[in-house]
């Protein structure tokens, strides 16, 4: 297997021009998918037999919660790549993705609270699932803080990468918190081994919303990495040419 693509990814210049053509289409597909999924889920999907219409917040809660964890996984992998292969692009990726992930984790907690009030009877409870997602949010904030607080850029890169990798331990805790301990949060509806615990007319719009949000975040991420590349590589000739030529 050729590792050429992997090493190419490490070149900011190559990544910049590759991502330039991908960001907009991916973002547009994402917006479209998210709108279709949300409108379908919030307006047309059937209501739940027990929770009625308050169940519909699942179409917001599940996509943002999945994205929060996926963003952290991607950030942790980027941290590992930086620590081992020292790719230039990896810290830019971490810096670009951390605020997106933080927003997703916060939205997961807020939408969960709005869902929890009518169904459970409380906005928040210190059970293992809710607490581990709060830890996820704080880890994102920690990575953002480390990268911004340290003046020395090499030190900042390294510190943020180490924190990203170490925080990966939290992901299995979030995933299995509802299985390992007694929690107020219910168990997983979707598992690999079993059929989903909801009919297709309920999970299909959810799937579309999830895929849409993944694409939307990917588009945002590519744009954020591009501006980070321009910022960090502003001394190189190709960036000067690019900025002069396109009047960015």
């Amino acid at each position: 297997m050729s590792w050429l693509w992997f090493h190419k990814l490490g070149s900011p210049k190559w990544f910049f021009f590759w991502s330039k053509s991908w960001a907009l289409p991916v973002f547009c597909i994402g917006c479209f998918g998210l709108v279709v999924g949300l409108v379908w889920g919030l307006a047309f999907a059937p209501e739940d037999y027990q929770q009625g219409n308050s169940f519909r917040i699942i179409y917001i809660h599940v996509p943002v919660a999945m994205l929060a964890q996926s963003c952290y996984l991607a950030m942790g992998v980027a941290g590992l790549i930086f620590l081992v292969w020292q790719m230039k692009i990896a810290p830019m990726f971490i810096k670009a993705i951390a605020p997106i992930g933080a927003v997703m984790a916060l939205m997961a907690m807020v939408s969960g609270a709005i869902w929890g009030k009518p169904t459970w009877g409380t906005w928040w409870v210190w059970d293992a699932r809710l607490t581990s997602v709060l830890v996820l949010f704080l880890l994102f904030m920690g990575v953002i803080a480390l990268q911004n607080a340290l003046e020395d850029i090499t030190l900042a890169n390294k510190a943020a990468a180490i924190m990203s990798v170490v925080g990966l331990i939290n992901l299995p805790i979030i995933k299995y918190s509802v299985v390992l301990w007694n929690t107020l949060h219910q168990g997983p509806t979707f598992t690999i081994t079993k059929k989903p615990e909801m009919p297709a007319e309920m999970w299909l719009p959810l799937l579309i919303a999830v895929v849409g949000l993944y694409c939307l975040v990917a588009g945002l991420l590519l744009w954020r990495i591009q501006s980070e590349i321009i910022l960090r590589e502003h001394r190189s000739n190709w960036v000067k040419q690019e900025v002069m030529g396109n009047g960015l």
């Binding site: 059937p46 209501e47 739940d48 037999y49 169940f55 168990g187 615990e197 909801m198 009919p199 309920m202």
Partner: peptide
């Protein structure tokens, strides 16, 4: 506490 099963009425 509610379970992880959802279905239309």
């Amino acid at each position: 506490k509610h379970d992880e099963k959802y279905m239309p009425p």
